[in-house]
């Protein structure tokens, strides 16, 4: 497979949020005005000015505490991005797919799109919208950095080796190898949609315990009518561009 991919080994993530802050720093994004809402997780959700968010979930096993799951959420840069398929129906310059890296990029022309349609098309609930400008935003894989031979800001900041970035084929190999190692002591370990996305998470338990949209799934009715239509005609379309 061409392009670049991330491997996010959640067995090593300590939710230090270095990635969350590094993203804001590189992108020069302002801080949100937050309040503690009874959780370490903040901001509460992704937003037009927050592309990367470490989600924290306290999971229970009956009435017993089980695990504190950390999920550094970001755009998965789908191999066949449904957001682009839907977006192209309105304006084919709004969402671009970088040929070299595979990054899915939102441009200024996203203001010409129907935000709800785009958000609904995303199996991972990533795109966010600015009401004032009607622009949409999300992670762009630090395409500017990557095109210049640098690591994405989040990957560079990661102290524990949770995040790796590189050529997609190699990353997939690393992910599969690591999965085998982890399965020895965590039999439920899994890779999230490894063949569909460029951001592959390794979870040590059911991915859904980490976050509702950790993996795409048919049981969550996310795909809009237009997206389903787009998906149906996808093979006929050029994959990149």
């Amino acid at each position: 497979m061409q392009g670049k991919s991330f491997f996010v080994d959640l067995t090593k993530c300590t939710a230090c949020r270095g990635c969350q802050v590094a993203c804001k720093q590189w992108k020069k994004l302002p801080a949100e005005e937050t309040r503690n809402w009874g959780s370490f997780q903040n901001p509460k959700d992704l937003s037009f000015i927050t592309y990367k968010l470490v989600r924290m979930t306290e999971a229970m096993d009956g009435d017993k505490f089980k695990q504190w799951y950390f999920f550094p959420d970001q755009c998965r840069h789908c191999i066949y991005p449904p957001c682009k398929m839907v977006g192209d129906m309105f304006d084919d310059q709004a969402i671009l797919h970088d040929e070299e890296t595979g990054a899915v990029l939102f441009t200024e022309a996203t203001k010409n799109l129907d935000f709800e349609e785009i958000r609904m098309s995303c199996p991972y609930d990533i795109p966010r919208w600015d009401e004032a400008s009607n622009l949409q935003s999300k992670c762009d894989m630090c395409n500017d950095r990557v095109q210049n031979g640098l690591l994405p800001a989040c990957v560079l900041s990661c102290p524990t080796g949770t995040m790796q970035f590189g050529d997609s084929d190699e990353i997939l190999e690393i992910a599969k190898k690591r999965l085998e190692e982890v399965k020895k002591y965590k039999p439920n370990a899994a890779l999230t949609d490894p063949n569909d996305v460029r951001v592959i998470f390794l979870t040590s338990d059911n991915p859904r315990e980490y976050f509702r949209y950790a993996v795409a799934s048919a049981d969550i009715p996310k795909l809009s009518r237009k997206a389903a239509l787009a998906k149906a005609i996808a093979p006929a379309r050029q994959v990149f561009g």
Partner: peptide
């Protein structure tokens, strides 16, 4: 993780305050 010591440096850093805005 998000703050340091009595917070003199980190409490003035907006991205860190965003992630840990108040004492809990």
């Amino acid at each position: 993780t998000e703050h340091w010591q009595s917070g003199v440096l980190t409490r003035w850093t907006p991205w860190l305050v965003e992630s840990m805005p108040q004492n809990f």
